[in-house]
């Protein structure tokens, strides 16, 4: 298009591709290793086998860790979605001043290093006697995942006209009914997508779980870490393959949900 060579644009493109490569190459390397025949990690992979997947599914320790992670992630997703939506609603629609304080508090986990959160949660949960319990994991992950729900729901709420609730109330709806019948249906896709995001955050959260893990109950990332130290078999990349596929599916799901929600909310604001 431009008759002259645009060096700025050329550099920008090169930079973007380099970043993408740095992100994607490690994943591209680890995935084929899951199908490699030797019982140690090698690259490039040799031969082709699905044995490591069956080892994973057949091993009760791996399965126990997976189920624990799934249960923790599911509960975290539900808890963050519910609490996050309520908190965000208060923040966006409530009195000003009050909201910004909570926003800082809720966003904290993004800014504060996970290791710092991990140490403080470790001390807190150990005092409560919740170390290594499912409830302890759920509490910790809810704190970590909260900002992502708050982000998505806040964006959605600011797109939904606050006057819609006033209109519902003038029709005889109580404040709660107005929220439940009008605002919630309009932001529900975003709430769900925030919940799915929380699920992912919880499911592959290593740092905090490392601190909270008991001897028996380990989450999947913690289990993988232990396995790397002790065995270093291609079960690890096999698990990585499964996790990656699940994450990609969930991300696509959330993108779809958000797209649908924005169309609906845009209609509500057309006036």
């Amino acid at each position: 298009m431009n008759p002259r060579l645009d060096y700025g644009r050329l550099f920008l493109n090169a930079y973007v591709y380099a970043v993408l490569a740095f992100v994607l190459v490690p994943i591209a390397i680890i995935l084929p290793m899951a199908f490699s025949e030797p019982s140690y990690l090698t690259f490039p992979p040799q031969g082709f086998t699905l044995d490591w997947f069956s080892t994973y599914f057949g091993d009760s320790r791996w399965m126990a860790a997976t189920w624990l992670s799934l249960r923790v992630a599911t509960l975290t997703a539900i808890l963050t979605a519910v609490i996050g939506t309520m908190a965000t609603y208060a923040m966006v629609r409530g009195r000003r001043g009050f909201g910004s304080v909570f926003q800082v508090l809720l966003m904290g986990p993004i800014v504060i290093p996970h290791i710092a959160i991990a140490v403080s949660l470790y001390m807190f949960l150990s005092a409560m006697g919740l170390l290594g319990t499912m409830f302890g994991y759920v509490l910790a992950h809810t704190v970590l995942a909260m900002p992502f729900v708050v982000f998505t729901v806040a964006a959605a709420l600011s797109r939904v006209d606050a006057d819609l609730e006033a209109a519902a109330m003038s029709c005889g709806a109580s404040r709660f009914t107005a929220f439940h019948q009008v605002t919630l249906p309009l932001i529900l896709p975003n709430v769900a997508s925030g919940g799915l995001f929380a699920f992912i955050i919880s499911f592959d959260e290593p740092v905090v779980s490392f601190f909270l893990a008991g001897i028996r109950d380990k989450t999947l990332p913690r289990m993988m870490f232990d396995d790397i130290e002790q065995n270093l078999t291609p079960v690890i990349p096999a698990v990585a393959v499964i996790l990656t596929l699940a994450s990609v599916a969930i991300i696509f799901g959330t993108a779809l949900l958000r797209h649908r929600a924005q169309r609906m909310q845009a209609i509500g604001r057309e006036a």
Partner: peptide
């Protein structure tokens, strides 16, 4: 009295139909 218990009809400046 709260708005929802006044039994009044109200039309707003913006079109406040429920989009869903």
């Amino acid at each position: 009295t709260p708005a929802n218990r006044r039994n009044l009809g109200m039309v707003f400046q913006k079109y406040t139909l429920f989009p869903h």
